[in-house]
Amino acid sequence: MPRTSASLSDALTNLPLDKGLRKAVERQRDAICDIDMGERDLLSPEQAGPVSIVERRAIAVYVAALHQERELVDRYLALLAESDGAGPALARVIEAEARRAAAHHPDPHLPAPASRALIGERLAVVFAHIQALLTGDRKGQARTLGWSADALGIVSRIMTLVIFQVRMIAGLRQCALARRNVVPLARKGYSHDV
């Protein structure tokens, strides 16, 4: 069973990158560490403010699951399961709902009543809001009952964080796979071939 990564640095280290790509990623170590610190600030803040730590981590699970990035889903599920006030059962329900929502995407999917009772009305509202943001549904974006502007700002930042990581991991994985049978990349320079 693959181990769960603890950070973006960790996730990138686990990718099957060749020597050239790995060195290029390592040269961006500072920027990647900044992203890891940003993640800690957002998902494990000392003072949670208008969005609780459980909610922050649940949102991260939901966004990662909507994007079907297993590596990130597992990382955020582990983080959620260890949060005070949450547990494996809540984590499983959220993941299952996100999976269903991903299967229906871009059509909206509302949690089943039984799941909604476990998740709570506040998270159900924000999950619908996230789906609306991702599909550009303006009416749905406006339905944010119980969420202040500050809280929605945090939701948006968590989405940015998670989607960025989804794209980095998936993009580099794709590059690694494509490079397996390709000649080494040329040195920098302009040509007008191809």
């Binding site: 940015t160 990581q165 989804v166 590059c175 990349l185 040195r187």
Partner: peptide, 27 residues
């Protein structure tokens, strides 16, 4: 990309730029 001189650092930058722009689109 390779035949047009895009090296590994630039490939990582390309992936990071796509990731950064994609992640910002919803806001």
């Amino acid at each position: 990309l390779a035949s047009n001189g895009v090296d590994a650092d630039e490939l990582v930058d390309l992936v990071a730029t796509v990731a950064e722009v994609s992640s910002s689109l919803h806001v």
